[in-house]
Design a protein around this nucleic acid. Structure first.
Lengths: 165, 165
DNA sequence: TTGGAAAGTCAACAAGCCTGACGTATTCTT
DNA sequence: AAGAATACGTCAGGCTTGTTGACTTTCCAA
């Protein structure tokens, strides 16, 4: 392919530059999941449980369907995870008041405690990286990640940020 | 925990900021893998095969052990993937000249063709995001990702960049 | 009242990771 | 020369997380 790509703003994006970005993303994501994975190993939970806890924590009372959309998995896949969390008393599933078909998901105290433990480890890890890189880099980091999201993702992302249900 | 963290350089890192970073990483990584996944679906290969092809392409003649370290998986796990790629004529495994225990991995023409197809899709995707975000943001993005890597990862990352064996 | 949406369940399966144990060829060390 | 170490491959079995397909229950709304 072409060696050099000059964008709108003279952005130099050689294939080599892009490859390095791809590899950086790969390695960084591994580190990103390492901390919570380590806490979870030995417990009967995995990454999927962590993700469910995280997003339920973010939007208490969230409907199952919304969680499904955010996670981007099938309901059958989520169901297995959710069933375990509910059975173990980490998540409570309450029937909707106005629409009784809906199930609203809440973390119990026990669930919130585990979520906090997982979250703290991961935040510390991100914070350390942010500190090393500095505030300007962080702003750029966020901007690129947001540019990477397509319409659906950005909607989920924004709704979490704004506390939307 | 604390609401506001003032770092060395007045970096503001509320828990909310950090959570958003975590979520952005989660969503972005989904998009990151979507393009190659789509190309691969229907073929008999998955993400693991893509990764192997990518890194073999980056370091032609790479030893199995090095690929193992980069990927961070067990040899049994890699072996299944590699066996398929070799059987299908995408990867060639040559016995080492100086040390005959070693196997050196090369992409065949066919392997290079698939790798290129996968890579082009992913590079296009990254390039689009980079364009949207702008060069300053890209520099920050890279800096944060590199800050996220621990020692081992950074070594792998740097060695690929420098063409080290 | 009937069609359809929302949620849940069961079954079967695959990818991709893991551990443990073992085999083989080769090279290094003593 | 003998034994230890290295590099790689393989068999067996298991776990998590994802998939599809088929089906039921509950409930809303036209």
């Amino acid at each position: 392919m072409s060696d050099i790509q000059l964008g709108d703003n003279l952005l130099f994006l050689t294939d080599e530059q892009l490859r390095q970005g791809i590899e950086a993303m790969f390695f960084a994501y591994r580190g990103f999941t390492a901390a919570p994975d380590q806490i979870l190993e030995g417990m009967a939970y995995g990454r999927a449980h962590h993700r469910a806890l995280h997003f339920i924590s973010r939007g208490q009372g969230m409907k199952v369907n919304r969680l499904l959309t955010i996670l981007g998995v099938t309901k059958q896949s989520l169901n297995r995870v959710l069933r375990a969390l509910i059975a173990d008393g980490l998540v409570e599933s309450r029937i909707g008041r106005t629409d009784k078909r809906e199930r609203h998901l809440y973390l119990t105290e026990k669930g919130a405690a585990l979520e906090a433990r997982l979250s703290e480890g991961q935040r510390k890890w991100v914070r350390d990286a942010y500190r090393k890189a500095g505030p300007d880099a962080v702003a750029g980091f966020r901007l690129v990640l947001e540019s990477m999201m397509d319409g659906e993702m950005r909607k989920s992302y924004a709704s979490l940020r704004d506390g939307g249900q």
